[in-house]
Design a protein around this nucleic acid. Sequence first.
DNA 1: AACTGTCTTTGACCACGGTCAATGTCAGCG
DNA 2: CGCTGACATTGACCGTGGTCAAAGACAGTT
Lengths: 242, 242
Amino acid sequence: MLHGKAMIPNDVCTDCAVRDRALCGSLDDRELIALNSIGQRRRVARGQTIAWAGDEAVLCGNLLSGVLKLVAATANGREQTVGLLYPADFFGQPYAGDVDFTLSALTDTELCVFPRAAFERVLEDHQRMERLLLQRTFDSLNEARGRMLVLARKSAGEKLAGFLLDMAARAGASGCRATRDGPVTFDLPLTRGQIADVLGMTIETVSRQLTRMKQSGLIGLPGGRAVTISDREALAARAEAA
Amino acid sequence: MLHGKAMIPNDVCTDCAVRDRALCGSLDDRELIALNSIGQRRRVARGQTIAWAGDEAVLCGNLLSGVLKLVAATANGREQTVGLLYPADFFGQPYAGDVDFTLSALTDTELCVFPRAAFERVLEDHQRMERLLLQRTFDSLNEARGRMLVLARKSAGEKLAGFLLDMAARAGASGCRATRDGPVTFDLPLTRGQIADVLGMTIETVSRQLTRMKQSGLIGLPGGRAVTISDREALAARAEAA
DNA sequence: AACTGTCTTTGACCACGGTCAATGTCAGCG
DNA sequence: CGCTGACATTGACCGTGGTCAAAGACAGTT
């Protein structure tokens, strides 16, 4: 087994953009080959739906690039985005029957998908990976519960201020200019309508709150999807205002 | 090992009220003894708090009787109940650092608690149990997301109608008179204020909506915490009203 | 350039539900 | 018995944010 590592074919997993952050990071090279044989890459264009609520749960996998959303809907068509997924996040539900929420692409995305049944077998053989999935699921649960508080008890201004800070942190994590106070500019990956779906408000209220923040000097709106955080302090204060 | 079963001491696990429904149902008698040695029963009175948000996560366990609530709070004191726990439900978060939400007793309760670290070791030795926990956590996540939809997009009347149907189903599961259409009466385990905390509204709105439903003949309010579902059909319709 | 569709902004209006306040009900207890 | 405290109900008022409507900005296409 000399040069064992060098003998691994240059398959998709070994040059995976999210390998160290995704669930599969818990596997060694040999195990990755096995996993690779059941998975495949797939591109999904912005706006396309990957799985519909009510469908049988046949797929799961990792998000490689782009942003996905999970949407819940009432019988009469009202919608609420109940989760956003970013690169290295896992999607799908092992051991489930039907899918509960519609999964679709907010931007053009790249996925690494597995048949659910085959993935379950991998989980059974890799307790470490199953444990990581459990931890991630707990984290998602905590996040969902935190968002219940936001949806139920925060004002439109507080919701939006908090959302912008979240998005700034996430954008900063990639560009990663050290956390300093100066104004930061980034592009939102969501339209006003999609933001409204996430925060439980309407397009109009999102728009009005944004212009209010701009007028107060908290943010700038250079155009398009771009946002500038001009006064992070004040924005954070507004996110927790009484 | 003849009469193996008969030799098991009459410890707390073997006569546990929720044994077949709780997580430990995945263990055999021998394993139960091991688990039993690290767990202990505890009574918690109505209103008492078991763990505060921000504390180190030191405990987990199963609820034996009564109802628990998980509460999230904003920096300035607004509160939202983000989960209700019923007998046989698991609480706590293995592999976590700090507790994210305050856990307290809505009614007098009986718990079966384990030190978190010891429980984690049990999970490591019992993959089947860890898998059950994963499934439960997914279920909780789906429930939390479903409630995000309710909190963000449903009117006060819809929220309350849905809540009453939930509670009736849960009460019926115990009393278990076969699902028929006739009026059913049961006691809510929550005060108006606690219902408001769960549904993201105020005491006053809960009260007003209840009297409206009573006047419409959907329900009866015999007094105290009791509720009568007089017209389940109409109540279900109101839970999904446009 | 003009046309199209999508997204955004802004205004006018108003309803749902929150806030404040008073009163009612009931159990426990000195 | 009449307190007391917790919980519930009802009313009056009003603000936040939803609805409806119109106009503006912008990218892509022919």
